[in-house]
Amino acid sequence: MRAMALRPATETDLDTIIELIHGLAEYEREPEAVRLDRETLGGHLFGPRPYAEVILAETDSGASAGFALFFHNFSTWEGKPGIYLEDLFVRPELRGQGYGKALLSALARLAVERDCARLEWAVLDWNEPSIAFYRALGAVSMDEWTTYRVTGEALSNLARE
């Protein structure tokens, strides 16, 4: 694998991050699902209390190749934090060149440096290329777990209970 240019994103990268998020939404067949507000996203990534972090991958010329957006979760059984990879995306024309693996390796290094118990993520069940890629890296699926989500009106209703 060739050397990859990886770096933590800064506030000046916000438009690039948004562009990559839109690219991911296109790939996942949900371009209309992106409803983010630039200012709000910037505050959550780079404000006084960041909720997530981003690592950018760049080509030799400095163009954006992809990104990993992640945040800490916590394992009560291990008594340690973990890293949850929310999104990993490499531009279609740059896939197969090692950017995805480099981003995951960087996250694994961060997890080890930060004394995390695990690195985990979710993948769409139809995304066979990504599933094969993750398995080749030694990742195992957590098939016994089902993810639940509360959003929109249901979230508001639950908050009032």
Rank of each mutant, 00 (worst) to 15 (best):
Y84P: 01
V112L: 13
S61D: 14
A132Q: 13
A117R: 01
R91L: 14
L119D: 06
F74E: 06
R109C: 13
T59C: 07
G96E: 10
W121Q: 06
G47E: 06
N73A: 15
D87N: 12
A57G: 14
A68R: 00
P92G: 14
E86A: 13
L85A: 06
K80Q: 12
P48W: 10
D115A: 14
F74L: 09
P92L: 13
V123N: 04
L94A: 10
C116T: 01
D60L: 13
I83Q: 00
E128W: 06
W126Y: 05
L110G: 02
A57M: 02
T59H: 05
A111G: 08
E93V: 08
R109P: 01
A106L: 05
S61F: 10
P48D: 15
E58P: 01
I55P: 00
F74M: 10
E128V: 05
Y51P: 01
D60W: 07
E120C: 09
W126P: 03
A132D: 15
D87H: 06
L119V: 04
L103V: 04
L110R: 12
S61M: 07
T76L: 09
S64K: 02
L119S: 06
L124A: 14
S61V: 10
A106M: 07
E128R: 09
A52C: 11
N73F: 15
